[in-house]
Design a binder for these strands. Structure first.
Lengths: 201, 201
DNA sequence: CAGAAACTGGTACGGCCGTACCAATCGAGG
DNA sequence: CCTCGATTGGTACGGCCGTACCAGTTTCTG
């Protein structure tokens, strides 16, 4: 067994690469299909490895899921970090800032309702898979820090990021029920409205 | 077959009672376990009927799920309607109003994180089960109307109910990730804060 | 009192699931 | 080279799932 002590860390370069491929495929699945669609067999098929490889490198599906969510967060936060770092330091209109807030919290590429659906299923999954909670919490904090930095650069320092994120999340979830594909648009409007009412206060 | 034309309406009193029992059990399951935990077998066991009864009265699991979500909404909105109707018509402090908002939107009895988890899984389920969307939309609208009425009675007429609900939903979802059982408390604080900033504007 | 329709309940099929098992293969250290 | 641990991949088990089937029973109707 490669797994000394119970975990499953690869001991060879090839093994590491394979584990890598599995995690990457799982992260892709989590991001597109949600955690419920992320099964051993689905991951194995997506990664192009036999079923047994997924149980060889991860003690359980929960372990695999944790690695996948961790990876999905990294995959998404990398570009966002660059995006924030590239933000010019100048006062920006509420409407434009709203777009930036969406890019930071949701990622710039999550445009379709289906993508947003998977995004929020991931959060809710914390309830059924407690092992996911630490990484979800951590991700939340990283996003919050990024958002604070972004708002600071746009001349909105001191904004209540928790409230901003809450309005965004809540609006998306309501919009997903409508099912008209306008979730992101609605969320942007809601964030812009909140930003404007804040700056007028 | 009882189902003339394809649907499955009972033709006898006993049949109606049985269908009733199934819907009631399914609604209970949806409210406590979430839609994913609501299977034919789980419902049959909870209702104390054989498995086949669930497929006899409902063409598919989706049909059963729709009936269950509809029923769950009715079960919850009834008490809330009475609660709102009993609200005295007088200006009320933001903090107290926040508690009322939570009672209306979440229901007065959904106190534990697990209950809230199931509540939001129900909304997200609309994405995977499009048949649920109409009833979810309808429920959303009923809650919004109730909330408008409640706020009016408390001297907060004209409040942005959509924004209020969004902050509430978003806060609960973030809090569920924390997993410390304080979701409802946090949401109440967030709603109170928003109400206060609104009235000061 | 038939006969038909509604209902009952046990059973089964095919599918996907997580996980376990194990013989075969590979690759580096002796 | 040879050995041994790492890795591979095919297979299987038991479980839950949605759904279908059907012989038997009840209940309504003419």
């Amino acid at each position: 067994m490669a797994a000394t002590g119970g975990a499953s860390r690869p001991a060879t370069a090839k093994g590491a690469a394979r584990r890598e491929a599995i995690v990457a495929a799982a992260a892709r699945l989590v991001a597109t299909e949600g955690p419920d669609g992320t099964s051993h067999r689905a991951v194995a098929a997506a990664a192009g490895v036999p079923l047994a490889a997924t149980t060889y490198y991860f003690r359980s599906l929960d372990d695999l899921l944790v690695a996948a969510v961790e990876r999905a967060a990294d995959d998404e936060l990398g570009p966002v970090t660059e995006l924030v770092a590239a933000l010019p330091r100048r006062r920006t209109s509420a409407d434009r800032v709203a777009g930036i807030v969406l890019d930071v919290v949701l990622g710039p590429d999550r445009l379709e309702d289906a993508d947003l659906q998977a995004h929020y299923e991931r959060f809710l999954a914390g309830g059924r898979h407690p092992a996911l909670r630490p990484v979800l919490r951590q991700t939340r904090r990283r996003v919050d820090a990024l958002l604070t930095e972004a708002l600071d650069r746009c001349g909105h320092a001191g904004a209540d990021t928790a409230q901003l994120v809450a309005v965004l999340d809540g609006t998306v979830i309501s919009a997903l029920v409508e099912g008209d594909g306008r979730a992101r648009v609605r969320a942007r409007a809601a964030v812009a409205a909140l930003l404007e009412s804040d700056s007028s206060a």
